Simulated assay, not measured.
Amino acid sequence: MDRPQRYAVTLPAPPGRHRPPEVVVVHPTGTYTAAGAPVYADEAGAFRVAIEGEAARPLTALPGPVRHPCLHAVRLP
């Protein structure tokens, strides 16, 4: 099965900020985690995630004080 060429990853808004979540599109980097999960990154390469199924695990720190160990990822056509 081919690896998806891009995913939309949802970054939740900080609690109490009353703003919508941010969606970041990520593309495959051609690298893998030690566990074998494919690594995806945004266009700038600053935001990197490992994606397994519909879960994106951040490999770089997210902006702001809130840390999320698991984010929602949607395969894009």
Rank of each mutant, 00 (worst) to 15 (best):
Y32H: 14
L76Y: 12
A13N: 10
T31I: 00
P14V: 07
A56V: 10
L62E: 06
P21D: 12
D42L: 13
E52G: 05
V39D: 04
V25K: 05
P63F: 04
T33E: 01
P21A: 15
H27C: 00
R3H: 14
V39P: 00
T10N: 07
P58W: 04
P4T: 08
G53E: 13
G45C: 10
T60A: 07
R75V: 15
M1E: 04
P20C: 00
P63M: 05
L76E: 13
H68P: 04
C70M: 10
P38K: 12
R17T: 13
G36S: 11
L11E: 11
T10D: 04
L11F: 15
P14K: 12
T60K: 00
V23E: 13
H27K: 04
C70P: 01
R6P: 00
A37M: 09
R75T: 13
V66A: 06
T33C: 05
R17P: 00
P15N: 07
V74K: 12
E52Y: 03
D2E: 12
H72L: 15
D2V: 14
V26S: 07
P4G: 10
G16F: 12
L59M: 14
V24W: 05
G16L: 14
L11N: 10
A56K: 01
P15V: 13
R17D: 05
R3D: 07
G45T: 11
T33M: 00
D42N: 15
C70D: 01
R19K: 03
A55Y: 06
P15Q: 09
A13G: 11
Y7L: 03
P63R: 14
A8I: 03
